[in-house]
Amino acid sequence: MSVKQSMIFGVTALLLVLSGAPAMSEEKSKQHIQIAEIVVDPAQLDSYKSAVAEQIEAAIRLEPGVLTLYSVSNKENPSQITVFEIYRDREAYLAHLQAPHFLKYKATVEKMVKSLKLIPVDPVVLGSQAK
């Protein structure tokens, strides 16, 4: 390959990479991201954990618009649960709310959950090695 061909190839490759950057940013800006702060009745914590595990497993397996669901408990107060949620877009989130496994989860935990606060967030930096 001549120097001229190498330069043309390099510039073309750079333009392709740069033109993809706005598309990726646009895609991320469409995502629906929120945090759910949940307080569970401590006497029902094991049952809650079982129900949320079943719901998250089904959502990740069955719903292509559900990108990330992490549920964690506070070490000092395990009945305080935080769920980090990322959906492809708002429509995927709304579809998730109507999914049979989510409706089952809501009915199951209705009397276990003492409070629920949904906090919409914007990403600053998201990083993961999980596949």
Results as ranks from 00 to 15, higher is better:
residue 2 S to D: 06
residue 4 K to G: 02
residue 5 Q to D: 05
residue 6 S to R: 04
residue 6 S to C: 04
residue 8 I to R: 04
residue 9 F to V: 01
residue 9 F to E: 01
residue 10 G to H: 02
residue 10 G to I: 00
residue 13 A to N: 05
residue 15 L to N: 03
residue 16 L to K: 07
residue 16 L to V: 15
residue 17 V to A: 11
residue 17 V to G: 03
residue 19 S to E: 12
residue 19 S to M: 14
residue 19 S to F: 09
residue 22 P to D: 11
residue 22 P to Y: 08
residue 22 P to F: 07
residue 27 E to F: 08
residue 27 E to S: 13
residue 27 E to C: 08
residue 30 K to F: 00
residue 32 H to A: 14
residue 33 I to S: 12
residue 36 A to Q: 01
residue 36 A to G: 08
residue 39 V to H: 12
residue 39 V to G: 10
residue 41 D to V: 05
residue 41 D to A: 13
residue 41 D to Y: 04
residue 42 P to H: 08
residue 43 A to V: 04
residue 43 A to K: 12
residue 43 A to N: 11
residue 44 Q to R: 15
residue 45 L to Q: 09
residue 47 S to Y: 01
residue 49 K to W: 00
residue 49 K to L: 13
residue 50 S to H: 09
residue 51 A to N: 11
residue 51 A to T: 06
residue 51 A to G: 11
residue 53 A to D: 07
residue 53 A to H: 03
residue 54 E to P: 00
residue 54 E to H: 09
residue 54 E to L: 06
residue 54 E to S: 08
residue 54 E to C: 00
residue 55 Q to T: 02
residue 56 I to H: 02
residue 58 A to K: 13
residue 58 A to N: 10
residue 61 R to M: 12
residue 62 L to M: 08
residue 62 L to F: 01
residue 63 E to I: 07
residue 64 P to W: 02
residue 66 V to L: 00
residue 69 L to P: 06
residue 69 L to R: 14
residue 69 L to D: 07
residue 70 Y to C: 01
residue 70 Y to F: 07
residue 71 S to E: 10
residue 72 V to C: 05
residue 74 N to P: 04
residue 74 N to Y: 02
residue 75 K to M: 12
residue 75 K to T: 14
residue 75 K to A: 15
residue 76 E to G: 15
residue 76 E to C: 07
residue 76 E to P: 04
residue 79 S to M: 01
residue 79 S to K: 03
residue 79 S to V: 04
residue 80 Q to R: 14
residue 81 I to S: 05
residue 81 I to R: 06
residue 81 I to T: 03
residue 83 V to F: 00
residue 85 E to Q: 13
residue 86 I to P: 03
residue 88 R to V: 10
residue 89 D to I: 10
residue 90 R to T: 11
residue 90 R to E: 11
residue 90 R to M: 06
residue 90 R to V: 07
residue 93 Y to K: 06
residue 94 L to Q: 15
residue 94 L to D: 14
residue 95 A to K: 10
residue 96 H to W: 10
residue 97 L to P: 07
residue 97 L to C: 12
residue 98 Q to S: 13
residue 99 A to N: 09
residue 100 P to W: 02
residue 101 H to C: 01
residue 101 H to P: 01
residue 101 H to E: 05
residue 101 H to D: 04
residue 103 L to Q: 15
residue 103 L to A: 11
residue 104 K to G: 00
residue 104 K to N: 06
residue 106 K to Q: 15
residue 107 A to Q: 12
residue 107 A to K: 13
residue 109 V to H: 05
residue 110 E to K: 15
residue 110 E to R: 11
residue 111 K to Q: 15
residue 111 K to V: 04
residue 112 M to E: 02
residue 113 V to H: 08
residue 114 K to I: 12
residue 114 K to P: 08
residue 114 K to Y: 08
residue 114 K to S: 10
residue 115 S to Q: 08
residue 115 S to R: 03
residue 115 S to M: 06
residue 116 L to G: 03
residue 117 K to I: 07
residue 117 K to S: 11
residue 117 K to F: 03
residue 118 L to W: 00
residue 119 I to K: 12
residue 119 I to Q: 06
residue 122 D to W: 00
residue 123 P to F: 13
residue 125 V to W: 02
residue 125 V to N: 09
residue 126 L to R: 12
residue 126 L to Q: 13
residue 128 S to R: 09
residue 129 Q to G: 10
residue 129 Q to I: 03
residue 129 Q to Y: 02
residue 129 Q to A: 12
